[in-house]
Design a protein around this nucleic acid. Structure first.
Lengths: 128, 128
DNA sequence: CCCAGCGAGTTGCATATACAACGCATGGCA
DNA sequence: TGCCATGCGTTGTATATGCAACTCGCTGGG
């Protein structure tokens, strides 16, 4: 399936550009989502990013280990929320230029592929 | 990134539809590729599917273990090639209807999403 | 007041995927 | 002829991802 291949390629492009900063596109996406949505609970993060809750749990673990985020127990007993640590904020700042470059590269390299994949998948042709 | 999310969703839809048959879209794709391209070496498979060689090695391992494919050493010394076992061929036949259903469902559910993702990514807008 | 069920999070397990480092055979080149 | 570069495959390691089963605390019904 073209869409899946496309996803892999995009992931490679971004991970590649972000490698010097020590994180991948999955983690950067989560950091940005947390930055934007303020302190929030894992569950909400899952909704925003369309990720299974267990995936969120484990990605958060890694980012906690790096000190990029902080987690605070929810007042009302169970659950907790996460927010950016200053290290996380700094990292996002630092990685932003690389992200831009990757964005540009993806657009350049995949414009056509995206276009044709979309046509195949949503208009009419056979998709594999 | 929308493209990645889209890829995940597509994967879920197909894996879901194929689950009763005991394989996922990644494996089905490989089976079909092998069926089409005849006996071929792992490396070529990687080129066709745009997968890293180590990924190919390990996916082939799993499919070998299932008895879906057979591997034969290359005449000229090193390397080998793989081809479908009859079980593999039968499986592809059996799974085909489910694949069709998933295809339809993906088209229905993602047509718009694909369209907009493609527009954002290849025309102009900010992509995250 | 107690219990059943629900919702959020965790854990076990499996797959898919990639990069880096290594192994091994082959083929050209000195 | 013998050695090195190159190409294909494997192995080590790490992420990302999902499903299923479980836990635990709250909350609404009785």
């Amino acid at each position: 399936m073209r869409v899946r291949r496309l996803g892999r390629t995009v992931t490679r492009i971004f991970d590649d550009a972000l490698r010097p900063h020590g994180l991948g596109i999955a983690q950067l996406s989560m950091l940005v989502a947390i930055a934007r949505a303020g302190p929030l609970r894992p569950f909400e993060l899952g909704c925003i990013l369309d990720l299974e809750k267990s995936t969120v749990t484990r990605n958060l673990e890694r980012m906690l280990a790096h000190g990029w985020i902080r987690s605070t127990p929810e007042a009302g007993g169970n659950g907790y929320h996460v927010e950016l640590e200053s290290a996380g904020r700094a990292l996002v700042q630092r990685a932003y230029p690389a992200w831009l470059v990757a964005q540009e590269r993806a657009r350049r390299e995949l414009g056509e592929a995206l276009e044709s994949a979309m046509r195949k998948a949503s208009v009419g042709g056979r998709s594999v």
